[in-house]
Simulated scan of single mutants.
Amino acid sequence: MGVQFGQDLPLQRPDETDSRAAVFVPTATIKEDVLNAVRKGAAVVGFGNHDHTLTIYYESNRFSEPTLAKWEQKARKAYERLRDNLPTTSKMVCKLDNFEQIGYISNKGITIRRRASLDRWLEQSEAQDSAPEGDNVAFAPPPPPKKIVAD
């Protein structure tokens, strides 16, 4: 089941008024070159374009950072790059049939609507231990800025 264009698929980059983006996993029919770029176990987030393609940002923890061990940490990192339009090589525009939408991500957290598809992707990637514990992952708010006190 690929992405159905126009069926609750966000159609723009997240911003202040609508911070929601889609969360995807590759389909069984994903093109090999797209899968090689994304890499197994990656978290993929993005939005639909008006020409019926997807803009996706992904994080696969290529450099084995300990802060990106869990799938939801990878998703948050990819989402922050997407939201802030940061320069990265971990993004692409591709056809809808390469990915299946499994939920949403926003500033507040991740909502997974198709858990079986996420579990299938992580199992294929031999990354089951990185799966989130539940279908709703809340993000902790950032710590408040430290006050500088002059002595």
Results as ranks from 00 to 15, higher is better:
N49F: 03
R113E: 13
R120F: 09
G103H: 05
A69S: 02
D97F: 14
A43R: 04
N36S: 15
Q101C: 08
R81L: 07
K95S: 09
Q4A: 09
F99T: 03
K40W: 12
R62H: 06
K91I: 04
E80Y: 04
T88Y: 04
T29I: 06
T27N: 06
P14F: 09
G134W: 10
A37P: 01
S125C: 13
V149K: 10
A127W: 09
A28G: 05
I148P: 03
T29N: 05
N98K: 10
E100D: 06
Q101D: 02
S90H: 02
I112R: 02
I56T: 11
A28E: 08
G134S: 15
R120M: 05
V23G: 00
I148D: 11
R114Y: 12
L11Q: 12
P10A: 15
E65I: 01
E133T: 13
N85F: 08
K147G: 15
V137E: 04
T29R: 06
A28D: 07
R20K: 15
M92C: 11
I56R: 03
V25I: 01
P145V: 12
E126H: 15
A78T: 01
P143Y: 11
E126W: 11
M92L: 10
K77F: 03
V149W: 05
R115T: 15
Q124H: 14
N98P: 05
D51T: 08
R81S: 11
I30S: 05
Q7K: 13
G103E: 00
D129Q: 15
P87A: 11
I102M: 04
E59R: 01
H52A: 09
T53N: 10
Q128N: 12
E59W: 00
A22S: 15
K95V: 02
T67H: 07
S64E: 07
N107H: 13
A28T: 04
A22P: 07
D84N: 12
G2K: 13
W121P: 00
K108I: 04
A22W: 08
I102T: 07
P145D: 02
V137K: 00
S64M: 04
F63G: 04
R39C: 07
N136R: 14
Q73R: 09
